[in-house]
Amino acid sequence: MTFFSNLFKREKKSTSVRSIIQLEFLEVDMHNHLLPGIDDGSTSVQQSLGFIKELNSLGFKKFICTPHIMDGVHPNTKFSITQSHQALLEGLRKAGSNIEIFPAAEHMIDDGLHTLIQNNDLCLMPGGYVLIEMSYLSESKALFQTILNINKLGYKPILAHPERYNYYHTNFDIYKQIKDAGCLLQLNLLSLSRYYGVDVKAIAMTLVKSGMYDFVGTDLHHEKHLQSLKNVVEKYPVREMLKSCNILNPTLIDHINDQNGNQIIA
């Protein structure tokens, strides 16, 4: 049998884990780096197909792919994202998979993002959401202005993995200020473990218990992330842990159904 004909065959469910499909309640993985060959995520269509198969076995049904757009590092555009998206769609077709993927982006707050906002040229998620991020090294002084500018365009900003910005760990009020400014917060699933360190987990759990998160994503880049995600699913009762938050991932299904995948990035 070929790789493509085998790839999406259903395997027998394992009984050795807590619940191998326990992420099914999320339905959509809205932050990942599955589009091949355009950032520090998947390096090939074949690798992306393997990742999608494994994430599907954990419960995810649809994927909003969010490659980096970052000046000088990952200078992606709608064109490069669309090209990679089409290549992965073709790979899924050849594999006989009906899993749906949608192109968007994770926008670094930098001068390039300022230009995209000025030109109303953002790579949107279904529902008009815009995923943004900051450097892990230093806070962006443009964060609140960026949130305001995105809202003025009629879109809804989501700050990726706020628990990972170490410079906020001693100022919990900043998370409330970000939300009050009109920005939603997205949790990385791996932050529920010690994958990024004890401090990140502590802040993530505080934000969870405070009901601050709106979205959850894998932020999957590579094989190590995948194996660690499996460990989280086996070790932690994720759904129970997130009951204090109004997680909006399932609402993305309606937005996805309302529009064509090819229209999202246009």
Rank of each mutant, 00 (worst) to 15 (best):
K78M: 03
S84M: 10
G217C: 09
N171M: 07
N166L: 13
K152A: 09
V130C: 07
G91V: 00
I109W: 13
L35E: 04
E100L: 13
K94M: 14
M205Y: 14
Q46F: 11
E11W: 12
L229R: 05
D258Y: 09
E90Q: 15
L153C: 05
N119I: 06
E11L: 13
S44A: 14
K61T: 06
L153Q: 09
T2C: 09
Q263C: 15
T77H: 06
K13Q: 11
I64P: 10
I203M: 08
G72F: 02
Q47P: 04
T146V: 14
G96H: 06
Y167Q: 06
L49G: 11
A160K: 04
G59R: 00
L207G: 09
K61Q: 15
K179H: 15
V216R: 04
G211V: 06
E11P: 01
M1D: 12
M30V: 10
I64T: 02
V200C: 13
K61V: 00
V73K: 14
G50W: 02
S57I: 01
G112H: 12
I117A: 09
I81E: 11
I203Y: 01
Y213N: 12
N151P: 00
I265T: 03
I150E: 11
V28E: 14
L226A: 09
G261C: 10
S80D: 01
L7N: 01
L207W: 04
L55V: 06
S42L: 02
I64V: 11
L124V: 11
P237L: 03
Q86G: 00
K141Y: 15
L124F: 00
G112I: 01
Q227V: 05
Q186T: 10
H74G: 07
G217R: 06
T82G: 01
K61L: 09
D199H: 13
H221V: 02
Q83N: 10
S5Y: 03
Y196A: 11
L187D: 06
S135V: 04
I150H: 05
I174R: 10
D214M: 10
Y195L: 02
K156M: 06
E90V: 09
I132R: 09
T115S: 15
F102G: 04
A142V: 04
E100P: 00
N249W: 05
H222L: 03
I253V: 12
H161R: 03
R194F: 13
D121K: 03
L113R: 06
A104F: 05
Y175W: 05
